[in-house]
Design a protein around this nucleic acid. Sequence first.
DNA 1: AATCCCATTGAAAGCGTTTACAAATTGCAG
DNA 2: CTGCAATTTGTAAACGCTTTCAATGGGATT
Lengths: 335, 335
Amino acid sequence: MVTMKDIAERSGVSLATVSRVLSGSSAVSLDKRRLVMTWVRKLDYRPNATAQILAQKKAFLLGVILPEISNPFFAEVLHQIEAYAFLSGFNIIIGNACGNEAKAVEYVASFLSRQVDGILVCPGDISGEAIFDRIPASTPVTVVTQSFEGIDSVFTSMEWGGDLVARHLIGLGHERIALLGEGKDPKFVGFTGEMKKNGIDINPEWMLAESPWGEDVPANSYSITRDFFSNHSDGVTALFAANDYAAIGALHALQDLGIRVPEDVAVVGFDNTYLSRQVRPTLTSVGQPIEDIGRIAVETILSKIDGERVAEPRWIPLEPRLVPRESTASRRNSS
Amino acid sequence: MVTMKDIAERSGVSLATVSRVLSGSSAVSLDKRRLVMTWVRKLDYRPNATAQILAQKKAFLLGVILPEISNPFFAEVLHQIEAYAFLSGFNIIIGNACGNEAKAVEYVASFLSRQVDGILVCPGDISGEAIFDRIPASTPVTVVTQSFEGIDSVFTSMEWGGDLVARHLIGLGHERIALLGEGKDPKFVGFTGEMKKNGIDINPEWMLAESPWGEDVPANSYSITRDFFSNHSDGVTALFAANDYAAIGALHALQDLGIRVPEDVAVVGFDNTYLSRQVRPTLTSVGQPIEDIGRIAVETILSKIDGERVAEPRWIPLEPRLVPRESTASRRNSS
DNA sequence: AATCCCATTGAAAGCGTTTACAAATTGCAG
DNA sequence: CTGCAATTTGTAAACGCTTTCAATGGGATT
């Protein structure tokens, strides 16, 4: 490997001068600069980032903790983070927690040891506590995709998403709407709140309870939906599922019962996964503004890295987007 | 930050002794060892990985170049690579090329500058040349997911995948089979080869040409398939698509024409994406052994990092898996 | 008691940068 | 010319660790 020392010797200048030429940190006479650059090119010199980090105490490295890379949503978040970090000259080192808190903690330790300039954390289903406890105050952190007490957070407001669905369905004339998921889910809270504002109450019996994150979500929601609509459908004209997987299970259940979507029952999913575009009928869904999340998360942490100290943690809720598709096409037109 | 020097001072021993205790590289008397460890714990000492890298010339870092993280397939490959790297104590630094060769090259430069121990490259659709040219022979590389002239490669044999499809369809009694994709695609080469071995020729007219990687693949394959089957379906009883996206477009086309799948026409996809499980009917597909790819890729590069020098590059073709689903259910049972 | 060996330890030289400080050179006003 | 500031350059000390080499000391061996 060719080092600065080699360049210095060939050019007959000191190490400091070479460093100055390379970094542009202070003026160097034109002739020496040219001389040095000539040798830099001739020997194809590449700086050793490790040595630079040690000397400068700046690594241009961001650690990213993810709950599960192979989940397309987080893969996309990572993609956006990477894109914006790249623009700012930062590299990304990843830690995939796999729902394993100990692994996440170990990754955090690695990151700190490697002198990362900051850590972005997508906690996913593991509690953040253990992670944040091990990050010293001197290392910037921001939570991505969720909000966390006392820590800068960039996330989508799920309540807001529920609002959007409510307004969308109200606009289409629906008043009797079943919910598929967990009642305390913020999106349902937002949804019922917005409905109530419009004088519409959601019957608690239409809350088809299901954990949206377990194994084999589509199959579960299939059977739950099938049960509901074959027994006591109760005049329900729309179904709002906690996510696209659940929505698709429901869709299949309705189709198997001979219930037409959207003519008889409209279906709304959540997350706007690419499934929602592939299924028939295509599925109305609510998407997170992933690009914004990534960009703003990176901006937030870079501003802290650049020394900005803000008194209190910033919570940045972002607005989701409703993407209307066939599964909620207007009833007037279709039936 | 507390450094080894602090530990040394508190314990009243030399830096060298602290280093020896921490690394276990050579014997230290029990009392000093205990003394040092006491202070290590008391001060919560954390080694500075950057300094270690500089001194040891080993970074325990793997660079991974990906064509597109948000593609679920590559996300899963990354996941597996991460899993095995983690077990060996290696961290992963990622570079997302986004089909942009210049970006890939820039990432490679970053990685080298950071003294990564090795680079795993998924070239995707960009030509590897430019990348490999910039990696000095001293840095281990292995290609993942594809094979590349003169470089260690871990990949799925697509010919083999074509074989599997051929045998599967033959076993179900199909003889007139349309192909949806590019004729020179290795999987089709494998397929036609295996068919020929069984005395079955594929009519060139049944080769429904389509680029499987462009924009809006499902829509394209939809119209191509629809054209074919509405005009001159020619007794074709099965369709083998180059990937699941294309297969799903075809599926919808057939359904819209009132052609039953699998009773009238069987459909086989490729890649075994999670779409294949969600679509109705569920889609028979051929999956890559992603876990094996990740594991073997990591094993391969680690063995090179550990100094193993093999004369000639290793090409490691892996066997794909055919996953039979509803779209090729036996015709005897169904019709 | 002298010799040798081994286990333990410390001093110091790296690893490849940056940077504070000082020295040398230049230009220019007095 | 002399003095002074500004510019350019070099020296050397960090940065935090590993590792070579030599030194020390205590047994065991003769």
